[in-house]
């Protein structure tokens, strides 16, 4: 992958214009996505840990964004977001509507060792895509709809049970929805606390590696 965007000068003589722009807008336009019309209600125990209220990246602010942009505002999805971007899957799928079961960063740490993950991200892109497809469902489905159906099929063709007990909705045997019903343009995003799909667990429980 090349990065034509990233060329930067040794001595930034030519960047006065960029600098002035930056100075007036305080670093491009990351400050606040355009708010969508209706307030978006997300549910689950993790929601409080994510941007809420009028914070940048709050659920209502994300509703009109393309899904790949919306994901960048969710600070507990950095692994999943980078993986989707690296895989190119969203571009290739070109779905009309999509539901994402998005494992949190903690879920990835519990699942894969650093070495396994780096290998998936840098070399085994086919395997990475397979893994990610196990977290995508065609169409936009609320958590209630998925739970009511009791079963769904992910983009990799695997059937996935959806069970609800008390306030918890579980995908397969392990992945509980921890903050559900984010909206993005043509997409629903449900954060889950475990990685789905066929790959074996390689994390040894010691957290990430030492320096």
């Amino acid at each position: 992958m090349s990065n034509p965007r990233t060329r930067t000068p040794r001595r930034a003589g030519a960047l006065l214009a960029a600098a002035l722009l930056l100075a007036t807008t305080a670093c491009t336009d990351h400050s606040e996505p355009a708010p969508a019309t209706a307030a978006v209600a997300v549910t689950g125990p993790l929601c409080a840990a994510l941007p809420t209220g009028t914070e940048p990246g709050n659920p209502t602010a994300l509703a009109g964004l393309p899904v790949e942009q919306a994901l960048t505002w969710m600070p507990t999805l950095t692994t999943f977001e980078a993986a989707l971007r690296t895989s190119g899957l969203l571009t290739d799928l070109d779905q009309d509507g999509l539901t994402l079961l998005a494992p949190t960063d903690d879920a990835f740490v519990k699942k894969f060792s650093d070495d396994t993950w780096d290998t998936l991200m840098t070399q085994d892109h086919d395997k990475l895509r397979t893994l990610l497809k196990a977290h995508l469902i065609a169409g936009t489905h609320s958590l209630d709809e998925l739970a009511a159906a009791g079963t769904t099929t992910t983009v990799d063709g695997t059937a996935l049970t959806v069970t609800r007990a008390d306030a918890t909705t579980r995908f397969g045997d392990t992945a509980d929805a921890v903050c559900a019903d984010y909206l993005a343009a043509g997409a629903r995003i449900h954060l889950v606390n475990a990685v789905l799909g066929p790959l074996p667990t390689t994390a040894d429980g010691s957290g990430h590696r030492a320096h």
Binding site: P9, A12, L16, A19, T28, P56, P75, T78
Partner: peptide, 24 residues
């Protein structure tokens, strides 16, 4: 900073910020 910690500074944002400091 502008995203209140929701996003880390991207590569391109780093380069723009760096160039602005360099310039100013």
């Amino acid at each position: 900073e502008t995203t209140h910690g929701a996003q880390y500074t991207s590569d391109t944002d780093e380069y723009a910020y760096t160039a602005a400091i360099d310039e100013l």
